[in-house]
Design a protein around this nucleic acid. Structure first.
Lengths: 132, 132
DNA sequence: TTGACATATGCCTGTATAGGAATATATTCC
DNA sequence: GGAATATATTCCTATACAGGCATATGTCAA
């Protein structure tokens, strides 16, 4: 068997650095947030080509992969195609990696647990309870 | 050019579902947390083989990839090799995906912002301030 | 219709798998 | 040393890119 196709899911799609870069551009990294419905602002392919400085086919192909896994959505607008980020598909990645949080940041974990405990018990402040 | 090698970084390594599964086993999913230094408990390859039900070479090979990107660490113990999860390498993935949080859960984002604001200003409760 | 512009798709090549089977290496015990 | 155990590595094959280049498709304007 070969490697899973890049169009399998978000995990495989974002494995490619260029595609993460592309998503970053679509997210509006270092640009003013402007419009966009669910995700980032709408950008046409020409804008992305200019922004990323890649050959046009490369941009289109990467967009194709991202489209297939639902990480971006398109709407036609005349001869332009407006792409926007669909963050919803990144959620599985987030959820997965989040379950490992305790393996890299024990400090953070403790803080969160305390916060959650406080919220559950609705007790106002830090009473030195059973330490972890 | 071909696809980036799976041993490039955590992003490429976790693109493979089996490797995520393997990490899950090492993390101690549905098992009692027992020992382990920085990451999860130490498990030898035989345990993983039994747990996952995969052919031994497959387990070893996937472990090899995970080892190369630092997602797992090994120590020899007699003829056994004890593997443990090294969550630190998952952090870049977490950090990256986290920057897109606002694109999938606006509700959560607002809650967090409010919480952070409250904590910064150390003001006790919801005073209807400048809405976002 | 014709041409210009915007974007997608096809073709080609080198590279890199993932899995299966067989084998090599390392370590312990007798 | 030799057998048994634990794990890694090699070889093989089918698959799948990612990028470069050429070309097709779709849309608007004159």
């Amino acid at each position: 068997m070969a490697r899973s196709p890049t169009t399998t899911d978000a995990f495989t799609a974002i494995a490619e650095p260029r595609r993460r870069e592309l998503l970053g551009a679509l997210a509006g990294d270092r640009y003013a947030r402007s419009g966009g419905r669910t995700g980032g602002p709408e950008r046409d392919v020409s804008w992305l080509i200019e922004e990323l400085g890649w050959p046009q086919p490369q941009v289109s192909k990467h967009l194709g992969v991202l489209r297939k896994v639902g990480l971006v959505t398109v709407v036609r607008k005349g001869k332009r195609r407006m792409y926007s980020l669909n963050g919803e598909q990144l959620r599985p990645v987030y959820d997965w990696v989040k379950t490992y949080e305790r393996f890299w940041d024990h400090q953070l974990q403790r803080i969160k647990e305390r916060a959650e405990r406080m919220q559950r018990e609705s007790k106002p402040a830090h009473r030195p309870s059973t330490p972890t």
